[in-house]
Design a protein around this nucleic acid. Structure first.
Lengths: 167, 167
DNA sequence: CTTAATCCGACCTGCTCACTAGGATATATT
DNA sequence: AATATATCCTAGTGAGCAGGTCGGATTAAG
């Protein structure tokens, strides 16, 4: 399966969507609540939220102690999925020499390399898609009601796929 | 790193590009030659070419015995990168419930699932990109000369990346 | 001062990737 | 016929990493 997003990206996005849905609440949202609503492990979410908090600029801000929790650092419409995914999964790069940003001369034979063109195109398509969608888009317009429906999703690790039949 | 293409996809594409460049040769091209030109393991290439040969429809045809080897089953302009990558890597699916084709109700909570929209968009962007590029595009117009320059590429497994700095 | 939360780092465990090994079979050349 | 050169096939394997768990330290509210 190409284009595999790990559970970091999957759970992390769900976490951010949850925070976006509670962005206008008076109190921060605790990981305990999120873990319960999304049926995810608290300890694992702590690892993910750490990435989101320590990123530059941070995507979430925390309040410690009782009744603490997390908030988005900015309104949902100002946070793109590209930002989130890059923090969680690293740069968008189908392979090592087709990474984003400073495409320094890693590959000595880069000029004679026909395939770089392909992977660069794929990378750009993904980046453009992710950068054009914000958290607000995912939360959606029909989101004043249904304040409690979980953003549930079947995970990669939930299901065993049939042994890689060739398509 | 999101969007990770495994060496199967990477080497397999290089193999196909090599075959495309020799498509109008009178003799089939042996894996031994390809392995040498691309600096890849012969035994590993055998595994990959098996997928390409057994796919439906096949992407390569083989000739056994001495002076045997492989050819593309069709002209380079009729083979898309989407076909090749799907045979090698499986369906394009960022995660299990955003796979291509029959999107049967794997996820029971699919309706309340906000994130499916995101991954479906990403999937479609990748699929469209791959399906719009053919082998002929990669081989390129300037390809009557330079019959022997290897299509070399730095591989994921060649380089150790610095321990996943956030970003 | 108890409870509820964030923070932190170490550890673990099974799976998959990326091969390698060793052969069996087929065919062209000498 | 013998040899060399190919494709074909199945198993095994070693390292690395995804995907967590565990135990505890710190901080703040009631």
């Amino acid at each position: 399966m190409i284009l595999r997003v790990s559970t970091k990206g999957e759970y992390g996005v769900r976490l951010m969507v949850d925070l976006a849905r509670h962005y206008y609440s008076s109190r921060p949202r605790s990981l305990t609540d999120i873990a319960q609503a999304e049926q995810l492990s608290l300890a694992y979410l702590e690892q993910l939220v750490k990435l989101l908090r320590e990123s530059e600029p941070p995507l979430v801000v925390s309040t410690r102690g009782a009744h603490g929790g997390y908030r988005l650092s900015r309104p949902p419409e100002e946070i793109t999925m590209g930002e989130i995914v890059r923090v969680l999964e690293g740069p968008i790069a189908p392979m090592i020499c087709a990474t984003e940003g400073e495409m320094t001369q890693i590959c000595s034979l880069l000029d004679s390399c026909k395939t770089k063109f392909l992977w660069a195109r794929v990378r750009d398509a993904v980046a453009q898609t992710l950068d054009s969608i914000t958290l607000a888009d995912l939360v959606g317009a029909s989101e004043q009601e249904a304040q409690n429906a979980p953003t549930h999703f079947i995970s990669i690790s939930d299901i065993r796929v049939a042994p890689s039949s060739a398509m």
